[in-house]
Design a protein around this nucleic acid. Sequence first.
DNA 1: TGTAGATTATTCGCATCCAAACAATCGAGC
DNA 2: GCTCGATTGTTTGGATGCGAATAATCTACA
Lengths: 167, 167
Amino acid sequence: MAGSHTLAETERQVQTRLAGMELDFAAMAVTSNLFRAANAVRNHFERNVLSKADLSWTAFVVLWVTWIWEPIETRQIAAEGGFSKATLTGVLSTLESRGLVQRVKSDTDGRLVLVNLTKSGRKLMADLFPAFNKQEAQVSAMLTEEQRASLADMLRSMTAFTEATEE
Amino acid sequence: MAGSHTLAETERQVQTRLAGMELDFAAMAVTSNLFRAANAVRNHFERNVLSKADLSWTAFVVLWVTWIWEPIETRQIAAEGGFSKATLTGVLSTLESRGLVQRVKSDTDGRLVLVNLTKSGRKLMADLFPAFNKQEAQVSAMLTEEQRASLADMLRSMTAFTEATEE
DNA sequence: TGTAGATTATTCGCATCCAAACAATCGAGC
DNA sequence: GCTCGATTGTTTGGATGCGAATAATCTACA
C-alpha cells in the first residue's frame, strides 16, 4: 500500500487496537487490497493515458462502452459502467459539450435516449485505446496468464455475488 | 457485470468493432473486473453498512485509518487511504463538523496537522466495524482461504508495481 | 378511453475528488 | 542571520457521484 505501513504492520496494529474483536483478516486483506489496487490502477491510467485526452476515468468508460455497442441507451451505459443515471447525465453533458458524443431521443419510446460517438469521438477512441490497452497489459504484467484468468474469475464472482444481493 | 452483456458477449463485440487492433484480452479482463468488483463492493458497503452511519466510503476509510493509528498526521491518512490531501481536507471538515474527529496543529512542526477520533468517533467505529468486517467476509465467502490469500497477493503486487512506476 | 403504476432521463442539493495555486513553515547552506 | 528550495494543509474551480424529486412517457387493465 502507498502508505508507510505494510500490511503486516497494519494487521499487528489492528490486533493491538481492536483486541477482543473477532475479525476476519483474510477478508480484510481481500477488501483493502481490492480498493488499493483499483485506486492505484485508476490513478495510473488517469495520469499516464487519459490525461492526454483530458478524460476522467468515468468519461473514458462511457466513451468505451458507447464505442463498442453504439447506438446504446443511456440506462444501458449506466448499468455497464456501474454508476447512476444521474452521474451519467452529467458526464454525457461534458462529453457532448466537447463534441465527442451525441444524444438522440428514441423514435419508439419517448422515455429513452440513445447515444452515439461522433466522428471525433471515434477518432479519439481509435487513437487512445491502443495505449490504454498497453497500460492494461503493463499493470498485470507481473502475473502469469493463468493468474490473470484466475484473478478475473475471482473478481467476477465477487461482483456477481455482491450485485445479486442488491436485487 | 451489472450490464446486460456478459464478458463473452463484450469480447465478441470488441473483436467485431475493433477488428485489426491487437488487443490483450486477458489484461482487459483483469482491469475491467477489478473496477467492477471494486465498484460493486463499495456500493454494497455504502448501502448496507455505511449508510446507517451516514458515511461515505472515503469518510469511513479516514475514520478507520485514524482509529488504528491515532494520533496520525494528515499526510499519512491521505497516503494510507489513497486519495489526495485536497480531498482529505474536505472529508475531515465533514467529519469534524459531525464531531467524529478533531484536528490539532503539531507542536513540533507548524506545517503538520494531527488527527484523533473523538469519543463519539471511537464509539461509532466500535459499533460499526464488526458489521463492516462481517460484510467483508461475505463478499469473499465464495472464495477458499487459499484463493483469498492468492487474490490479495496478486492485487498487492499490481498496486506495488503501479505505484512504483509513479515515483 | 381513461387511469394507475412503472419506467425513463433530468434536475437539485450536497459530498467527494483532484490539479494548481497559495501561504505558512522547515531546514540546509552560505 | 538570511535565503532558497522543499514540504505542508488549505483554497479554488470544475468535474464526478448519488439519492430523491420531478416531468414525460409507456403499458396493462377496467
